[in-house]
Amino acid sequence: MGKNVVDRRHQGIALLLSAPAIILMLVILIAPIAVATVLSFTDYSLGNAGFEWVGGENYTRIFTHSTYEKMLVASLTYVLVVVPVSVLLGLGAALLINSLRHGGSIYKTIYFLPVMATLLAMAIAWEFALHPTIGLINDTLSDGCDSGWVYRLATGAWYGNDPSSSWYGQGCSQGFPLWLGDRDYAIRTICFIGIWQAFGFNMVLYLAGLTSVPRELHAAAEMDGVRSSWTRFWLITWPMLGPTTVFVVTITLIRSFQVFDTVEALTHGGPVKSTFVMMYAIYEKAIQHNLVGMGAAITVAFLVFVMLLTLAQRWLVERRVHYA
């Protein structure tokens, strides 16, 4: 009996001691999510005295209304382009830099610069470069039209192609794309900037992963008769980078779902909602249009996406890529 009393007192102390952490966690992490979930079933607007319950209407809209369909298309396009390209580029750059004897750190620094730079400032630089009439990119492209050999090379004329049917040839005669103002090009341009920014980060993660590949494993492969670097990559490097790859893919996925600053700075979701990504939709609905309920619903949908990804990662990590 005496033991029970002591046990209960210990339990009390334990609760008391962990209370600050638990309360903080509830207030800072759980409560906002709970509030957002509750709001997502209402038509609440900031400043209104009350709100109506609307049930699942906000969610139904996400999956039926054409604006939100465009939102899902834009977000998925961005994610499906940026993730594989930036991961593969990051891996390729890491492998190349790792094989260098000298000068690796210069490349590392240069490729990592976009990661360190403020994206908003870089977005302004991109805006100038991509400007349809005075921008550096279209300027350079149209300069090439006047130089004979560049024109022949870029249009494929040297290969026997019809210059006017090629992309470059059409650009020369009808003007080059508006990049950020054209509904076909805007999302691609945003994707390009996303890749430009993400791949340096992935490269650094892969470089760290490569240092953890034991030197003796390469020696063993050499003794076992592995001759080509292609075979060595599939026998050692790729399997040993499994955990890194899962991490890199997950991080890039989440960051790609969260893309916001380039869209806000360069396109404001347009033209014709072609770059209306999820984060920007939340911002526009909840902050600009004061449709807090709708914004909350998108937020919850976003959370569910990220949660599913994280669960998939855990499942993969535990089953496949950690060998020890």
């Binding site: 003796e216 494993l217 020696a219 063993a220 003794m223 050692i236 399997p239 040993m240 060998y323």
Partner: peptide
């Protein structure tokens, strides 16, 4: 035509 056994065994973990 030699074979080597390493201190860390150097087995392919996967």
């Amino acid at each position: 035509d030699l074979a080597m056994v390493f201190q860390s065994y150097a087995l392919y973990p996967h």
